[in-house]
Design a binder for these strands. Structure first.
Length: 264
DNA sequence: ATCGGTACCTGCACGC
DNA sequence: TGCGTGCAGGTACCGA
């Protein structure tokens, strides 16, 4: 579920965790821990202070006092919640000096990991879409042989775009999801760059998209699903030309687009 | 070094 | 009521 705007919203709702101390921790699900030892991990984070909570693409990184990092990825169904109760899919509970932080994830595609050094998976990500310059973005597009939709989903290209915002950005830019990245001329690359920034900025302002169950750390839903123009609107009229929106599978993922407005 | 395909998990909506 | 199917915001890993 959570893409850049949802993760940004979660991180903002976690702002007051900074300065809190982790009194105790309990980790349960081995899959979500990526094979880490639950008790050893609890011992590593216990009594540590949360020094910072930052977002890198779709990753959340908490810096702990005296070094070390707690990295969280929400996968498709992950949630960080500032209130209980714990349920069937609660895989981690951090008891703080004031309050509690729960990690839940029914599909277990997310992860929560402790590392002494800054996590390598985060260091390997591409640039933030809201920070990359147009020249760097356009140059990177020219270097890629693949089609534009899977490229936007590639976190080594830009970090944080997912299926919703890739489809929405391509619609706004008038670019077909199967267009080849390297063949986009400068004016279309500029349209895509502007559309990507606009859609992400608007979605953050709306608190993200709540498709089925996304909520921020205080349980609030987002509103941006009301502004989707193509995502999960298959068969509905295009907001621009009224042609029915189509859905095709591109590298195993649904792509929603207007066959008239979006050109290869 | 880059790709596209597959695997991983649960829950829900749907048709029969 | 139950069963099978297809679908869902994600990434990692594999072989070509």
């Amino acid at each position: 579920m959570p893409e850049l705007p949802e993760v940004e919203t979660v991180v903002r709702s976690l702002a007051h965790l900074v300065g809190r101390r982790i009194v105790s921790a309990e980790f349960r699900c081995l899959r979500v821990l990526r094979g880490g030892n639950p008790d050893a991990m609890a011992a590593r984070v216990q009594c540590r202070r949360i020094a910072a909570v930052k977002r890198y693409g779709k990753f959340i990184v908490m810096s702990l006092g005296d070094g070390g990092y707690l990295m969280v990825h929400l996968g498709m169904t992950g949630r960080l919640l500032l209130a209980g109760p714990a349920g069937k899919h609660t895989h981690a509970t951090l008891t703080l000096d004031r309050g509690v932080l729960l990690y839940e994830d029914s599909r277990q595609f997310g992860c929560i990991e402790f590392s002494q050094d800054f996590p390598k998976r985060v260091a390997r990500l591409g640039p933030e879409p809201l920070e990359v310059s147009f020249d760097d973005f356009a140059a990177a597009l020219r270097r890629r042989k693949t089609r534009i939709k899977p490229l936007l989903l590639n976190q080594a290209f830009v970090r944080g775009m997912g299926n919703i915002y890739a489809d929405e950005a391509l619609f706004r830019a008038g670019i077909h999801p199967l267009a080849f990245a390297s063949r986009l001329r400068a004016d279309r690359a500029r349209k895509l760059y502007d559309a990507m920034i606009a859609v992400l900025t608007e979605a953050i302002a709306a608190g993200g998209s709540s498709i089925s169950d996304y909520v921020d750390a205080e349980g609030r839903k987002g509103l941006f699903q009301l502004s989707h123009r193509v995502y999960q609107r298959t068969g509905e009229p295009c907001v621009t030309c009224e042609t029915p929106i189509r859905r095709v599978i591109v590298t195993q993922r649904s792509s929603h687009f207007c066959p008239r407005c979006q050109k290869r």
